[in-house]
């Protein structure tokens, strides 16, 4: 819509918007995270919801204990190989549209515990991650920044067309295969449809 016409209308008390704008405005301001903590970062996540940092300002204070009622999974902490199938299963149980924030170095890549035999080297091997926050643990401000990044991402989503998000595309998968326990490692070690190891390019 023409910007001049819109401002003219608003002067006369008529508010105009697009369906897409209204839809995304509603969704981005009521993201309900899953009440789900893994390790140290979970404490900072709780601190973010408390009075000092007040996640409620972003419409995300309603932490749901059940994945069926949640829109957002904050993977807050080290994902071990023993826990990874459960994380994927929880993600599968969440209804679309759903988003994932990988909070902290461990959830991104294994972090300081990367060399552990039982540590998964990044949750993005099994589920698609929307926002990564570095830090060990990230400060609450960093989590707030991740929220705002996610809100911008939701705001930019199209309702139709080839770039429409996963939940509006019937062909896109909504559930992801749950890895199985092998004798030493998870089987498969990563989901090739979600994640491919990038080529390591090093001169030396």
């Amino acid at each position: 819509m023409d910007q001049g016409l819109r401002s003219e209308l608003s002067k006369q008390g008529i508010f105009t918007t697009t369906l897409e704008g209204l839809y995304n405005w509603g969704r981005r301001n009521s993201v309900w995270p899953l009440q789900f903590g893994l390790a140290c970062c979970a404490i900072e996540m709780i601190a973010t919801t408390m009075a000092r940092y007040d996640l409620a300002r972003f419409g995300a204070e309603v932490f749901r204990p059940s994945p069926r009622q949640a829109d957002l999974m904050i993977v807050s902490g080290t994902v071990t190989k023993k826990m990874a199938p459960q994380v994927v299963r929880l993600f599968n149980q969440m209804p679309e549209p759903k988003y994932v924030i990988a909070m902290g170095a461990c959830a991104i890549s294994g972090g300081p515990f990367k060399q552990g035999y039982n540590v998964l080297k990044g949750i993005d091997r099994y589920i698609p991650v929307d926002v990564h926050i570095p830090g060990c643990p990230p400060r609450p401000e960093a989590l707030l920044h991740a929220f705002m990044t996610l809100q911008r991402k939701i705001d930019a989503q199209k309702l139709s067309g080839p770039e429409r998000p996963r939940h509006l595309n019937t062909d896109a998968p909504s559930e992801f295969p749950v890895p199985k326990f092998g004798p030493h490692d998870l089987v498969p070690p990563y989901n090739p449809e979600v994640w491919q190891p990038p080529k390591m390019v090093r001169a030396v």
Binding site: K81, N118, P189
Partner: peptide, 28 residues
């Protein structure tokens, strides 16, 4: 108690060979 049932080997032994999952290292 810590590893899953069906895990093979005893990981704290000095000669335990860790699973090879070093596909990608951002800053090796």
């Amino acid at each position: 108690i810590l590893m899953w049932d069906g895990f093979e080997g005893h990981p704290m032994r000095k000669d335990y060979v860790e699973p090879d999952d070093y596909e990608y290292e951002p800053t090796p």
